[in-house]
Nucleic acid binder design. Structure first.
Lengths: 247, 247
DNA sequence: GCATGCCACCTGTCTGGACAAGCCATCGTC
DNA sequence: GACGATGGCTTGTCCAGACAGGTGGCATGC
């Protein structure tokens, strides 16, 4: 670790987490901390910026920074894979492929994956478990160019994201998630052990590489009660919203 | 607007939005743009940072920045009030208070609002509309210390967040949202014009001031089909996730 | 006692410079 | 033609300094 601003952010995160700076307390000023760590104010501001984007601290011009929360939220903002997310919460993730077959992309799929209509894609239906209980049914469409790598994975692959990274260096670095609620269909009901028509949380997502190349698009349905999505945010985290609310 | 970095971010956002830089295209280098705008590289990086946190562009050391998406996501990350969010999407927000009464905080409510059990709180049941259609039923609990300000608001107040800011300078600057799916209850069904038991997207949220003082906690239920929550994210947006995924 | 004005302090913004690390097209070699 | 090395360009990181504008506490005056 040679990046000073990350070191400092880590240290502050730890100090906040262990209660050295309780929620509501004011942090030392930039100049003090910069001097204490032997870095310039700019580097320290970079570290503060990281914590701010995590929702741990808030700031106002003129006043000292304030601790808003003790632990970073385990939210989308980290774009975790299901497996990473599960383990971060101390649960054991599992999974199994129910079906996988190649086919031609529909117009909608092609548009989302930036392919030509009719290009080959890979459809995968996968059930995901947490401590053995089914919680999530994934209907994923992979772009043809990464189908082979996905097919090579074992049926009970624990973390697809991790495995694709290990196998072919593919990094899912960007995603867009749409959330709504839908009634369980016949397949949903059977696989998730719920009654047909009962509410499911649906997350439609498209994941792309760092270059903006779409990798997969998926319709994920979560059984309620077992998984709750958490989003923590603050006006400070986004410069867009920092201004006074407009009329 | 005297902040150069915001001006530049706005300009770039517009250029990306109108297709001057299509999705997938590379942007000019920092040095070029800095020279073109007559600012230092630092200021330009600040503007780029804003766009990056919005998910519009991505970057890798050594390569030019790339356009990832054409429109900023209207997501939680901005912690918009319902009214602001609606208007940003070109819709007309509305609303009406169905009932409001003071009461004693339950243990759960007290914990979430950081009050003592039994302290006075204000319960408000509010329906929210978009272009006249009911889309959201809010069950909100306000801490006693801001009850008066809330009661003073008109029944059909369009933006509670805005009004509280105008009236008493209260700024909702931080929030935590929990999302899941629930079946519609009797009241939900009647007010949102759906069948009982049909799926609703539930968002339980707690909002606090910049100092971390909880203002309200709410159970919001959205009628599906009309509102979709969108979260866009990238590993770049959050330094926590920038490292290689761990096993 | 209370309001007011002042002032030290702190954060936000911006500059101009420097070096490290990564990317990629070009060139030369095999 | 395929392959590998090179070097220019670009982004990431960091520094030292400057000024503007907001905050909050203290002292003054009513």
């Amino acid at each position: 670790m040679t990046r000073r601003h990350e070191e400092i952010a880590d240290e502050l995160r730890r100090a906040i987490g262990d209660g050295s700076y309780p929620v509501g307390a004011a942090l030392p000023s930039e100049s003090e901390l910069a001097a204490a760590h032997g870095v310039s104010r700019g580097t320290l501001r970079q570290a503060f910026g990281t914590l701010q984007s995590e929702g741990l601290i808030g700031s106002r011009q003129g006043a000292r920074r304030v601790v808003l929360a003790a632990t970073p939220s385990q939210s989308f903002t980290e774009l975790r894979s299901f497996a990473q997310w599960a383990r971060a919460g101390g649960r054991t993730p599992g999974g199994r492929v129910l079906s996988a077959h190649r086919g031609k992309a529909t117009d909608a799929e092609a548009a989302q994956l930036q392919l030509a209509p009719g290009d080959e894609v890979l459809h995968v239906l996968r059930i995901r478990t947490l401590d053995g209980d089914p919680v999530l049914l994934e209907r994923t469409v992979y772009a043809g160019w990464c189908a082979e790598a996905v097919e090579a994975l074992p049926d009970d692959c624990e973390s697809v994201t991790q495995s694709l990274y290990d196998a072919v260096g593919l990094v899912m670095s960007h995603g867009e998630h749409h959330l709504d609620a839908v009634p369980a269909g016949t397949v949903d009901a059977r696989e998730l052990s719920v009654r047909r028509g009962s509410p499911l949380l649906r997350v439609r997502r498209t994941t792309t590489t760092a270059e903006g190349r779409p990798v997969e698009t998926s319709d994920d349905r979560y059984r309620p009660g077992t998984v709750v999505f958490t989003v923590r945010n603050s006006v400070q985290a986004n410069p867009l919203a920092r201004t006074t609310p407009d009329h």
